[in-house]
Amino acid sequence: MAERSFEVARLPGFKFIAITAFVLLYMPIITLVVYSFNSGQSVAVWEGFSLDWYGKAWANEAVKGATYRSLIIAASASAIATTVATMAALGTTRRKAFKGQTFIYVMINQPLMVPEIVTAVALLIFFASIKVATGYNGLIYLIIAHAAFCIPFAYLPIRARLEGMDLTLETAAADLYASHWQTFRRVTLPLMLPGIIAGAMLAFVISLDDVVITEFVKSGGQDTLPTYMLGQMRRAVTPEVNAISTVLLALTVVLLTAFFLLTRKND
């Protein structure tokens, strides 16, 4: 019986397609990483191994400023998004089904569906009028914008975690003299914590990576790492950009690995 069942891995050409797909996916990234160690000026001609570009990027004040802003924005935005997403997840799972539930679900996940450029233009126009009216140009606009599009990324893992949780546990806590708050604090929160951390990490990575919305919303001198790199590309491309990208890539890989470990079924 088993050998008759359909096995995609045994179709002719499967190996070839799989290998091609992996090469196409990872060759550019590998090339980028390799050339970050190039001693020459080019991102296409290998001249020898060196860590010069990492040193240069590290010494570059513009890179430092952009890194600092990126981290501030990502940390603040993911914190806000995770808090909002946690409350939204509790509100959509810890009650009986209600009218308009699907609508609310769609609203929360709206940033996943609306083209990013539309959100970017809308935020540009909206924030421009506030900037004119208040005269304030701080990072807060970027933080709010990032928090908004990070919410669904934080929401989905938290909600998945809550949905997989046995509601009897909360009933049992109440039966054992826990108040609503104690039940949340001692049972619900610890059990949903892996989901919350996973959501926060995903939100952090998404924020760190954003170009389109940041490019539209930022005021002068508010480059984040991705928009700084985009600006550099317009001039001379040096392996400095490769070096920054490689560091970002390493950070993302670490966070996403942690995310997968946390969302994996434990026990």
């Binding site: 049992a172 054992l176 059990l191």
Partner: peptide, 12 residues
């Protein structure tokens, strides 16, 4: 106090 059918022990 209640002993639940599923036991409902706190897994954490």
């Amino acid at each position: 106090n209640t002993v639940f059918q599923s036991y409902a022990l706190f897994p954490h």
